[in-house]
Amino acid sequence: MLTLTNVRKTFNRGTINEKVALQGVDLHLDRGDFVTVIGGNGAGKSTMLNMIAGVYPLDSGTITLDGHDISQLSEHARAAYLGRVFQDPMRGTAADMQIDENLALAARRGKSRTLRWGITKSERESYVEELRKLGLGLESRLSDKVGLLSGGQRQALTLLMATLQRPDLLLLDEHTAALDPKTAAKVLELTEQIVAEEGLTTLMVTHNMHDAIRLGNRLIMMADGKIIYDVRGEEKASLHRADLMRKFEEAAGEELANDRMLLG
């Protein structure tokens, strides 16, 4: 389904700010995999997702999706296959546009945009149904500007937008990290529900070890721009936080002190 082969990325090469973000990432996802990604700050988790999404050009390596090489495709062209939710709730929606207009934009991801009307009446009706499933009362606020919504509501809406048009791959980049615990739990619950219903292949970056173990069928750990641990199925299900901490210790060595604090 998704295959990353020797993907490398260095930012600001040749300057004092040079930062090796990914040093040879190999990863293969099967259809329907729900993979959680953990790792300390600067491990390369978000960079990996951004490379898949085409935000930055590759230094080397290839990315294929469903057998198509997408390594050289622009970000907007890859969007046809990808659903994305960002960490910052402000980034995933257009604040000055209405809820239904945002959904209509998302419904046209990957389709050519024409001079046909940007939103139709029947569409609007279907959005009411979709919004009702979120259970946030947004179904009665179709023509409200998204800027009026709370961070959690915006993030739930972004999640709906990302999956409205079924994506081949769903990329979740710490999408609950900026929310309060209660809202984060709600958005995570919606995530589980949508991913399960649609059987979506999903990559979810998280800082929360508990969520990383509990969700999905596979877990990968990154450090220093590499995947250092990859566990799935039964083995993953029986993981404990202590096991992950031990893995960190083995891999990260002296950097651990920092990471232990971050991951506490």
Binding site: H76, A77, A94, D96, L105, R113, G118
Partner: peptide, 28 residues
Amino acid sequence: WFFGTEIGSALRATGNNEDMSRALGIDT
């Protein structure tokens, strides 16, 4: 009329949030 069409909406979205627009497949 134009800003109500699919292309016009994409244009308004671009002015509003470029990151989102590209993530939704709009060539900004």
